[in-house]
């Protein structure tokens, strides 16, 4: 599985055709989802498959249809970025050496509140899915913040790309996507019109 991931990543870097790159990114997400399943993290795998392989691919394709599907050839040698990546990668690999073994019950994250959550899920909440119990009940306030982040993302996209919450939305919304003929000049300027 990891070999497949690596092969996909190398192909994504080598390809110049962005359409194929987007498809490979989707495949990469799907492979990651498979990897999560082998680690018994079904909820994460589910999210990765739905968001990473599904929605992200659609959004990338939408962006491609707005821009171009060929990547421009690089104008300079990637020495500095390569150095940064190598150093960061080495630091991360060095960091993993201090991580506890996979599934080690004596690891620090499994010691603090986890035993209480695991035993409490059965008695206090009565749900078989601990992930849902932790996400929605024990850490409910965190999840509220997460939903707030998604809400903010939606508002941000509306403000940046749609010219305000009520601006173009009102004109383009109900009666189809026919562009308003009355204001053709201000639409040519590009991003600054928002």
């Amino acid at each position: 599985m990891l070999a497949f991931l690596l092969a996909t990543a190398v192909m994504i870097i080598r390809m110049r055709n962005l359409f194929a790159v987007v498809m490979l990114t989707g495949a990469f997400s799907l492979l990651t989802a498979g990897l999560f399943i082998t680690l018994d993290a079904v909820d994460v795998a589910f999210t990765e498959a739905a968001v990473g392989a599904g929605i992200t691919t659609v959004l990338f394709l939408g962006t491609l249809s707005l821009t171009t599907s060929r990547e421009k050839p690089a104008t300079h040698l990637p020495t500095l970025p390569l150095a940064v990546v190598l150093i960061t990668g080495a630091a991360l690999v060095y960091g993993t050496m201090d991580l506890p073994g996979f599934g080690d019950p004596a690891a620090a994250p499994h010691q603090y509140v986890m035993p209480e959550y695991v035993s409490g899920t059965e008695t206090q909440i009565g749900l078989p899915n601990i992930v849902t119990a932790v996400l929605a009940s024990y850490r409910g306030f965190d999840t509220l913040g997460e939903v707030g982040v998604i809400f903010t993302a939606g508002v941000g996209v509306l403000l940046l790309l749609n010219g305000g919450l009520g601006g173009r939305a009102r004109r383009n919304g109900g009666e189809g996507a026919a562009p308003p003929v009355s204001a053709p000049t201000d639409k040519r300027k590009g991003p600054d019109r928002a």
Binding site: I55, V58, L59, G62, T63, S65, L66, A153, G154, V157, L158, L161, N162, R168, N172, A177, P179, K187
Partner: peptide
């Protein structure tokens, strides 16, 4: 919303 805004921009 994100999809509609992206796709609607193309049409616009």
């Amino acid at each position: 919303i994100i999809f509609e805004v992206y796709a609607g921009r193309k049409i616009a």
